[in-house]
Design a protein around this nucleic acid. Structure first.
Length: 848
RNA sequence: GCCCGCGUGGUGGAACGGUAGACACAGGGGACUUAAAAUCCCUAGCCGCACGGCGUGCCGGUUCAAAUCCGGCCGCGGGCACCA
């Protein structure tokens, strides 16, 4: 073989790695372990470049750590439950189970040629009964610990299809299939008590030093701890039982600017009025239109209804405020009731202007300032302002000071108390769908809601279900619901809700440490392998998946399934950027968007029909938008190493990368060149031993740069250093021995990124064994030292000249040289500089 | 609407507050070849013949020195609890 031929060598090396069980994770107490995990994929059926990017990054880390002497765990599995399988069954027939396992087989077959260093012996899918049965066992344990409960919660209801919709299935307030306006409807649902852990989940963020700051910030904001005042208004004209209206406010300092009280449409008082007052009922029905997402609620037009009820102001019982029902008040936050201070809250101001309610300024800027007009005055709470409506603090005070004083005042006078609130709500896990983990609970007429016996687990999904109509197939299955009560033995009915798929992905990392254990986890294996040392995945999971996992690890610890050290399961987190691509869209007869895969499109039109497509600028690659690129064709054309090299080049890992086809060929060319450099080690050039030192210095420089690049998750910089090193080898006329040494090191440094090519070169140049098992090279510090340094000379911050001086030259000597420099002499024209700044080894700035 | 990011040549990007544009892609020129492919060499931010000037989304500030720090805008992206 005289040229780079990945189609021949890549399968060969993959077979060699398999035969030697190179990637099998060993519980070896003699060695330090390293657990690297990439967020496992949903088995859509096709891998895309986002997967390639994610798994290649993880693979670089896994292979690098392995060569540094760690016992590495690098597993792979499938996040296999979820809606797409049911949608496929509805659209194309077939069964979610067959669809899912077929997709898994396809995707595994697409992933294997990438040459990832994965321990495939630990593979599992969350839809395996062996997995979800253990999840059911933990659910039962958590029930016993009081971490699970039921309550009413709102869902998106499609009144035509008579089914619950996911937020994703609500488009512009309408059902995606029926097109009918969606309503908010209450159902009894299962919840995890994540809010019990709100404080802990917030405080523990500080300890996650190796998580991106932005993720910790997002989680902190999501948990949303706030300090405020809770107090009760005395009502006038309210139905019996509603003599008091509890409200929560984070701005009690604006109490004298109150102009109305507002309650959520789901507030008990609103419901009481709804029952007797048709006008209220009509208004609330209006509020229930549209989806349940916070986005839908926040962006909907703000509407209100004056109930006619009034409340007495706590600071002045003669002052009465009207009580409105408003669609932007959330029942889930605080008490579901607020008072509005329009002058200092934009939303309240818009509402007040719309309905002609009073606007009273509480404070103005410390200097000057005018009464509020169209824009509410909302300064930072730390800003000092001039108070017009202070009632327990000085005229000049910050918001923070005023809030503290207002709470103290309320507590002293006894009309309210300081309260800490969280935005975080309990985690609703009920799904009225088939393809999920059944909630292992039985409804008995006499015993109530009872957990299934553990020996009856897993509660398996029935296979004989149909998807010819909307709704939950478990609900309409003829026999599956029938069972006997575990407590009294009477006839009973099984719970037909299944679990949110976020539950499945909240503990898979722990299961990988003992994937075949007969209990959810195995203590010894957990103890050795936990925590995940490096977790890698998309930023889109920054809040929900990661927060749920952090909660679940705590719940698993509380139920004895994880050691205390694992309550924060991910030591380090890296959030990769997304792979983006253009989106191709047409519209169907109803004007709804239809998306098309890149390979279905040619020259701006559908290949099949010639219909013109709209090209929407690059966005995240997603199944629903179908803007996915198929890596398989890249691999078959150029080989896995080219795909891997390309995806690591150029773009920093945390940033989005737009996929362009043009780069793949260039990557292939470079790998071919490197192969050729190794092949021609003995034959290329005359060989001049006086150049050896320069080449070896470049080699050590590269070792240092590549190591730093990998350690610092800057793979693009590691790649750049390897490009530079290839250039250096190519230009060098060093002796054959030095070049051989350089290329062996090149193979080692490239092996985490292009493992097959590295084995090619390693074998060609007589390296011992597999490069995959060779120890990582170390840079010799002595070889990194430069004797002289070039200093740019700035004059007033602009670069005008430079001098080259010995690295060790004392500062005074450097200054002397600078002042003697031709350019500097000319500019100074006999005068002396105002200032001379010498940053050793860096720069000189002459200020004149 | 709310929370969080990002913005540097034609393109992807590099740059402990210290020479802006490393390393690449695309481009231009050349060598080799009957020719092409492949490969190799040179070139290259923008304006200008040049001296030089201008340049990191926009405006302002801090500093001897700002892509980097601070304030205010604009644009793009992610998340918003039932997409995964």
């Amino acid at each position: 073989m005289s040229r780079y031929e990945p189609s021949l060598t890549e399968p060969k090396w993959q077979a060699a790695w398999d035969a030697a069980h190179v990637f099998r994770a060993h519980h070896d107490p003699q060695r330090p372990k390293y657990y690297v995990l990439e967020m496992f994929p949903y088995p859509s059926g096709r891998i895309h470049m986002g997967h390639v990017r994610n798994y290649t990054m993880g693979d670089v880390v896994a292979r690098y750590k392995s060569s540094c002497g760690f016992s590495v765990l690098h597993p792979m599995g499938w996040d296999a439950f979820g809606m797409p399988a049911e949608n496929a069954a509805m659209e194309r027939g077939g069964h979610p189970k067959e669809w899912t396992y077929g997709n898994i087989a396809d995707m595994r077959a697409q992933m294997k040629p990438l040459g990832l260093s994965i321990d495939w012996s630990r593979e599992f899918a969350t839809c395996d009964p062996e997995y979800y049965g253990q999840q059911q066992a933990m659910f039962i344990d958590m029930m016993e610990k009081g971490l699970v409960y039921r309550k009413a919660a709102v869902v998106n209801w499609d009144p035509v299809d008579m089914t619950v919709l996911a937020n994703e299935q609500v488009i512009d307030g309408k059902g995606w299939r029926s097109g009918a306006p969606v309503e908010r409807r209450e159902l009894t649902q299962w919840f995890f008590r994540i809010s019990d852990y709100a404080e802990d989940l917030l405080e523990a963020l500080d300890g996650l030093k190796d998580w991106p700051e932005k993720v910790r910030l997002m989680q902190a904001n999501w948990i949303g701890k706030s300090r405020g005042l809770q107090f009760a208004f005395e009502t006038v004209g309210a139905p019996a039982g509603h003599e008091r209206l509890e409200v929560y406010t984070t701005r009690p300092d604006t109490l004298l600017g109150a102009s109305f009280a507002a309650i959520a449409p789901d507030h008990p008082l609103a419901k009481a009025l709804e029952a007797t007052n048709p006008a209220v009922a009509a208004f609330i029905a209006e509020c229930r239109k549209g989806g349940t997402s916070e986005e839908a609620i926040e962006t909907a037009e703000k509407i209100g209804f004056d109930t006619g009820i009034r409340v007495k102001h706590p600071l002045d019982p003669t002052w009465e405020l009207p009580v409105w029902i408003a669609n932007f008040i959330l029942m889930d936050y605080g008490t579901g009731a607020i008072f509005g201070c329009p002058a200092h809250d934009q939303r309240d101001l818009d509402f007040a202007r719309k309905y002609g309610l009073a606007v009273t300024d509480c404070f103005l800027p410390a200097e000057g300032g005018e009464p509020v007009g169209k824009t509410a005055f909302v300064p930072m709470k730390s800003e000092r302002v001039r108070w017009l409506k202070a009632y327990a603090w000085p005229e000049l005070a910050t918001g923070e000071e005023a809030i503290a004083a207002a709470i103290a005042h309320a507590e002293a006078k006894g009309y309210g108390r300081g309260v800490t609130n969280f935005r975080l709500r309990d985690w609703g896990i009920s799904r009225q769908r088939y393809w999920g983990c059944p909630i292992p609970v039985i409804h008995c007429a006499t015993c109530g809601v009872v957990a299934e016996r553990k020996e009856n687990l897993p509660v398996r999904l029935p296979d004989d279900v149909t998807f010819d109509q909307p709704g939950n197939p478990l609900d309409r299955h003829p026999t599956w619901r029938d069972c006997t009560c575990p407590t009294c033995g009477a006839k009973a009915r099984r719970e037909t809700d299944t679990m949110d798929t976020f539950v499945d992905s909240s503990w898979y990392y722990a299961r990988f440490t003992a994937p075949r254990a007969a209990t959810p986890t195995d203590a010894a294996e957990c103890d050795y392998w936990m925590n995940v040392d490096q977790y890698i995945g998309g930023v889109e999971h920054a809040i929900l998946h990661l927060l749920y996992s952090r909660f679940f690890a705590r719940a698993m610890h509380a139920t004895g399934h994880l050691p205390a050290k694992a309550i924060e399961p991910f030591n380090a987190l890296f959030t990769q950027g997304m792979v983006t691509h253009e989106i191709y869209m047409t519209r169907d007869a109803q004007g709804r968007p239809v998306y098309h895969l890149p390979e279905e499109v040619e020259n701006g039109a559908l290949k099949a029909t010639g219909q013109t497509v709209d090209i929407i600028p690059s966005a995240k690659m997603s199944k629903s938008k179908k803007n996915v690129v198929d890596p398989v064709s890249i691999v078959t054309t150029f080989g896995a190493d080219t795909a891997r090299w390309f995806i690591l080049s150029d773009s920093p890992p945390e940033r989005d990368v737009e996929w362009t086809a043009s780069g793949a060929e260039a990557a292939f060319k470079h790998l071919s060149r490197v192969w050729r450099l190794a092949y021609e080690v003995d034959t290329r050039g005359a060989g001049d031993a006086t150049q050896d030192m320069a080449l070896l210095k470049a080699m050590h420089r590269t070792i240092a740069d590549v190591t730093a690049g990998i350690e610092g998750f800057a793979f693009n910089k590691a790649v750049a250093a390897l490009y530079a090193f290839a250039n250096a080898v190519q230009k060098s006329d060093a002796s054959a021995g030095a070049k051989r040494q350089a290329m062996l090191t090149m193979a080692q440094l490239m092996s985490p990124m292009t493992p097959h090519l590295a084995e090619d070169i390693w074998a060609m140049l007589g390296g011992a064994g597999l490069v995959a098992q060779a120890a990582w090279p170390k840079a010799d510090p002595a070889m990194l030292v430069e004797d002289s340094v070039t200093l740019p000379i700035q004059i007033n911050g602009k670069r005008r000249a430079e001098i080259t001086v010995p690295k060790t030259m004392p500062q005074a000597e450097v200054e002397k040289l600078v002042l003697a420099d031709e350019t500097v002499v000319k500019v100074l024209a006999g005068g002396t500089p105002k200032k001379l700044i010498v940053v050793p080894g860096r720069i000189v700035n002459v200020v004149i």
